[in-house]
């Protein structure tokens, strides 16, 4: 069965740029007069992996709330796969998968029930949701977990189920908001590796928000967010040489004036 929401269903004019998974232009946002984001701009090509690096309080969660349209942005523009988020909310949402900072699975329900619920939220039949769930779980080396209750899974396994959930409707863009919070080092490393591999194999664009420098791979693109502004955007080597640093860690420290520690 075809996915319930095909971007192809949209008019040609909506698909301004097919190769761009996410386009954020001049995005500003403030809470009660306090600026949180100030003219943030960046874009993400299809299948690209980018780390959104920023210390706590940099505005990462706000940025995610705006991209997922928990509430509306008032200044600037957000496009998902070329579609304006506010005007084509339905189609745009169908193209994004999200892993939130907080765990959001129902603990007493099984993995299958959780994924089936998500499939329904994207208009899938239970059979279709099950087929895709098995597929995604296999890719994440979680096959055989369908009947288990989420409560009985480890923190790292729960995260992988959430990633499988985020990819269930085959989005072009996967957003992860500090997905490694609360995981031990080994699970953290495994998760970073898994998502990099998914990005390569499935061609999904990934925006990975974190404040942890060791989650950055040498080939990654890094967008540094500091006090609501993008203060650097480029490859790891580029950032290191731009800031005349010895490592990306040092570069990050310099860019954020040591606030990351």
């Amino acid at each position: 069965m075809a996915p319930a929401f095909t971007p192809e269903g949209g008019k040609q004019t909506r698909r301004a740029d097919d190769s761009t998974a996410l386009d954020v232009r001049d995005l500003s946002f403030s809470y009660s007069g306090q600026p949180v984001l100030e003219s943030v701009s960046f874009d993400l090509k299809a299948g690209e992996f980018a780390v959104l690096l920023g210390p706590n309080g940099a505005g990462k969660t706000t940025l995610f709330s705006l991209i997922t349209r928990l509430y509306d942005h008032r200044q600037g523009e957000i496009r998902i796969g070329g579609l304006d988020l506010r005007r084509h909310s339905v189609e745009a949402h169908a193209q994004m998968g999200v892993v939130f900072q907080q765990p959001t699975l129902d603990m007493d329900l099984t993995v299958r029930q959780n994924l089936s619920y998500h499939g329904a939220l994207h208009g899938m039949t239970p059979a279709e949701a099950l087929r895709r769930a098995s597929q995604q779980l296999t890719r994440l080396e979680m096959q055989g977990s369908l009947r288990l209750r989420v409560r009985h899974l480890s923190g790292g396994q729960r995260r992988r189920v959430e990633i499988a959930r985020g990819l269930l409707h085959e989005p072009r863009l996967l957003l992860l908001d500090e997905p490694t919070v609360g995981l031990d080092i080994a699970s953290r490393r495994a998760l970073v590796e898994h998502v990099h591999r998914l990005c390569r194999e499935q061609g999904v664009a990934v925006l990975w928000a974190t404040h942890l420098i060791d989650e950055v791979y040498p080939d990654d693109r890094v967008i540094v967010l500091h006090r609501g502004r993008v203060c650097a955007d480029g490859g790891v080597a580029e950032l290191v040489s731009q800031t005349a640093s010895a490592s990306i860690g040092e570069a990050f420290d310099r860019l954020t004036e040591g606030e990351a520690r």
Binding site: F5, T68, R69, L70, S89, V90, E91, A92, H93, A94, M96, V98, F100, Q101, Q102, P103, T104, D106, H118, L121, H122, G123
Partner: peptide
């Protein structure tokens, strides 16, 4: 806990 968000990011 965020599961309201899961609901609200549905298309």
């Amino acid at each position: 806990m965020g599961s309201m968000r899961v609901l609200l990011v549905s298309p």
